[in-house]
Nucleic acid binder design. Structure first.
Length: 212
DNA sequence: CGTTGGATTGGCT
DNA sequence: GCCAATCCAACGC
């Protein structure tokens, strides 16, 4: 299967809520130091914008979130809960501080390596969740700040963009109940089994009863 | 310098 | 459904 051309810088230089749904169906490609290529198709993402109380960027730059305030098209990786990494794509204008969290991919290539990284044999448990995804693809501190447009360790290609009809929106997972819980900035491919089991922050008419 | 809690996951009741 | 795991960034004093 063709990877398609790489997504250009201009693709990322837009608001995160615009970029996020268009990332679905794209290929996330990871080249390991030993040459192994891992690849999956994005099926679930979340947008984090400027002035977003749920965003790490809320409150301004810190050593941890600095990459978010850099140029778009780079990878922002952070460590959380003492054991998991989460990976984001930086979006918007340089200095803006917005990003899209990569929550799940459908594994397409390098499944054996993913299984080893995850210590699981069930593909549904490889990359269905932000912490699982980074573990399966061996993405960690070293990949923080990686340039997705020009680098070779991690990048995104055109892949198979999906029709907007197939994109479902819900509130975000794990953002609590405060401000920031309401906007429906989690985008997923309707009916895809590899979407994470994470529950939206504010279940309601917009989320629970929607057909998949 | 001490405290708090996290854009999660997996195992157990 | 509940909760422990396990580190460390952010923040307050």
């Amino acid at each position: 299967m063709r990877l398609g051309p790489r997504l250009p810088r201009a693709f990322f230089a837009r608001p995160s809520t615009e970029v996020a749904p268009e990332l679905l169906g794209r290929f996330l490609v990871r080249r390991l130091p030993d040459g192994t290529r891992l690849r999956g198709r994005l099926v679930e993402v979340e947008a984090y914008g400027p002035n977003d109380p749920a965003s790490h960027a809320f409150g301004g730059p810190t050593p941890r979130n600095l990459v978010m305030f850099g140029p778009p098209g780079r990878l922002y990786v952070y460590f959380t809960y003492g054991m998991h990494f989460c990976a984001n794509v930086v979006t918007g204008r340089d200095g803006e501080g917005s990003a899209v969290l990569l929550r799940a991919i459908e594994p397409l290539e390098g499944l054996e390596s993913m299984a080893a990284h995850r210590n699981r044999s069930e593909p549904l448990l490889f990359c269905s969740g932000p912490g699982r995804l980074t573990q399966a693809l061996a993405i960690g501190r070293a990949e923080n700040g990686a340039d997705l447009v020009r680098g070779s360790e991690v990048f995104l290609t055109a892949g198979e963009p999906i029709r907007r009809r197939v994109v479902a929106r819900t509130t975000r997972v794990g953002v609590g109940t405060g401000p920031g819980a309401r906007p429906r900035w989690r985008y997923l491919e309707r009916g895809n089994a590899f979407v994470s089991p994470g529950r939206p922050s504010a279940p309601g008419p917009a989320t629970g009863s929607r057909r998949s």
